[in-house]
Write a protein that binds this DNA or RNA. Structure first.
Length: 254
DNA sequence: AGATGGACCCGTACGC
DNA sequence: TGCGTACGGGTCCATC
């Protein structure tokens, strides 16, 4: 529980994660308290006294709460020390995560939060159709575009497309209203189930508590190259779509 | 407007 | 055993 924790110091060993001058960042965050934590798509937002600290943890970033004397892992890149002796440590093997600091009164209107699309659970299926029906790119690119619909990554897009019976290379402007609706409801289903099972541990992802997810056991197509489709037994194929590895049952997905 | 490819990073899984 | 290399994840950016 970090709510109401007061940050009295910050250290880092890898500056590029902090998307501003690190000294400025430290001076601004120091002595502010964490009042709330919000989430927008894949971004986590710590609401402080006057600022909003906006985190993106990419694929495997996570926060650990430890004691000040606990061993510091070489993958812990930003350490927030609290007044109560605990530390909140940002752990990121790939160093891909980002931290932005913005005024808490206006961060929603600024990059990186301002351009985000709605999440599947908040997106009206007909609105989704309106957003995509003029787009000439592959439907998979649309589903991965956080400015159109937020919250889906590569794994969950593959699963959403499978449940919808739609091929990742289908052009967005060829998607019918009925199919657009199916995509939104499938995306909700995929995310709800993945969240309930603690996410997908495919490479090295674990939760902040080091717990492995279990959704990888429920995957229908993603990573299933060469295996039979759970619906029709056709062999699942692997291909690139928009530069991203994609797994498809070409018998079920048209 | 859209597609493409590179950049960022490094543990893992390979091939030799 | 040890080395080299490809890969992938999310996002931005330059270029076509």
């Amino acid at each position: 529980m970090v709510k109401d924790a007061k940050i009295i110091d910050i250290s880092y060993d890898y500056a590029p994660i902090i998307k501003m001058d690190p000294t400025l960042f430290i001076n601004r965050v120091k002595y502010q308290s964490i009042h709330d934590i919000e989430r927008y798509g894949k971004y986590l937002v710590f609401i402080l006294d006057t600022d909003a600290m906006i985190m993106h943890m990419r694929m495997e970033g996570k926060f650990y709460i430890k004691k000040i004397n606990d061993h510091v892992s070489s993958h812990e890149h930003v350490i927030f020390s609290f007044s109560d002796g605990r530390q909140m440590r940002y752990h990121d093997v790939r160093k891909f995560g980002t931290i932005h600091l913005l005024d808490k009164n206006s961060y929603k209107n600024q990059y990186p939060i301002n351009g985000l699309g709605k999440e599947p659970k908040d997106l009206d299926p007909l609105d989704f159709y309106q957003l995509i029906h003029h787009r000439k790119t592959a439907i998979k690119n649309v589903l991965l575009n956080q400015h159109i619909i937020s919250g889906l990554g590569n794994i969950y897009v593959d699963e959403t497309l499978f449940l919808s019976g739609i091929h990742p290379k289908r052009l967005a402007n060829k998607i019918t209203k009925k199919e657009a609706s199916k995509l939104v409801t499938s995306a909700r289903e995929v995310l709800d189930k993945a969240i309930a099972l603690g996410g997908s541990t495919i490479r090295s992802y674990t939760s902040s508590l080091g717990v492995h997810g279990r959704f990888q056991n429920e995957l229908n197509v993603h990573t299933k190259f060469g295996e039979p489709c759970p619906k029709c037994q056709n062999t699942i194929v692997k291909m690139k779509v928009g530069g991203r590895t994609s797994y498809v049952c070409e018998s079920c997905q048209k």
